[in-house]
């Protein structure tokens, strides 16, 4: 699915990355704990989160996240916006809560970047 379609089905605003809506995505990870994003998220996935500070963008960059979806109507901090522009990571903002956002995406074919955590979660 293209990021453009993600924007449409989530009725989202594009805060950063209006020129990047042709990115293809097929997986997602949702968390407010950035250590878990570092541990489990996969490159090229969407990151669904309610955190709005610059660390979300840093974490996304470290994990090669395709785009950040801010849920629950959260607005990113100025620092987060500046960093997202610099690191060229799109930020979309939706008013749907995390559960609904995940459900809408899942029903359209986006799946988790992993199903369960376990021994194979860490790629040593």
């Amino acid at each position: 699915m293209k990021l453009r379609e993600v924007k449409e089905i989530l009725d989202a605003d594009v805060i950063v990355g209006k020129d990047k809506l042709d990115i293809e995505v097929s997986t997602a990870f949702g968390a407010d704990l950035m250590s878990d994003v570092l541990a489990f998220a996969k490159a090229g996935s969407l990151l669904l989160t309610g955190l709005t500070n610059a660390q979300v963008v840093q974490t996304a960059a470290t994990r090669h996240i395709a785009a950040i979806i801010l849920v629950r109507g959260k607005e990113p901090s100025t620092e987060a916006i500046d960093m997202a522009k610099e690191l060229q990571i799109p930020i979309l903002a939706t008013k749907y809560i995390l559960f609904e956002t995940a459900g809408i995406l899942y029903s359209k074919g986006i799946v988790g970047c992993l199903k369960k955590v376990g021994n194979d979660s860490f790629h040593k």
Partner: peptide, 19 residues
């Protein structure tokens, strides 16, 4: 914690990702 850290995962993650 508000930054999304401090849940006791840091050193664990470092250990997991280091050879």
């Amino acid at each position: 914690r508000e930054m999304g850290f401090g849940a006791g995962m840091g050193l664990h993650n470092i250990n997991s990702y280091s050879d």
